[in-house]
Amino acid sequence: MIAIYIIAGVLVLLVIFVIGIYNALIRLRNQVKNAWSQIDVQLKRRHDLIPNLVETAKGYMKHERGTFEAITEARSKAMGANTVSEASKAEGALGEALSKFMLVVENYPELKANQNFLAVQEELTGTENKISFSRQSYNDQVLFFNNKIQMFPSNIIANMFNFTKRDFFEIEVEAEREVPKVSFS
């Protein structure tokens, strides 16, 4: 009789243990998903800022039509991208166009003194930083999730319920690596 109680007790504890780990895994996976959607939120904010930026700067930079066109084109390409790899390429190009634009801005002291432009500029710096920090945070979450999946004892439960490892966000375009420092002076 006592043996049955002990076995039942052990079984109950085991079930509680498995449920606990399972819930932790689900929570971590949701955190990874959430971090990924954060990146999209920030990218979308960058798209929304660009018309405003172009509008503010246009009047001062009459001779830089090419720069503006590059930005607008990269933006529409990024917004129209369908696959993940396409999107990441287009976003890379957009980032590059923006940082080129910011280098050109250096030659227009009047523009740099404009209050409206300064406000847009701060928003853009903030957004570029938020993009890179959301990528950084996504990778943090993925690292933690992958560790949990591979480590004992949670790896057993992860295998039972088909939790699979997530990929890190890596910047494919070589030039993108240097991008998120849209820097103004």
Binding site: Q42, E123, T125, G126, N129, K130, F133, S134, S137
Partner: peptide
Amino acid sequence: NVVEEMKIA
């Protein structure tokens, strides 16, 4: 913006 950046990070 800076607080939001760090909140995201």
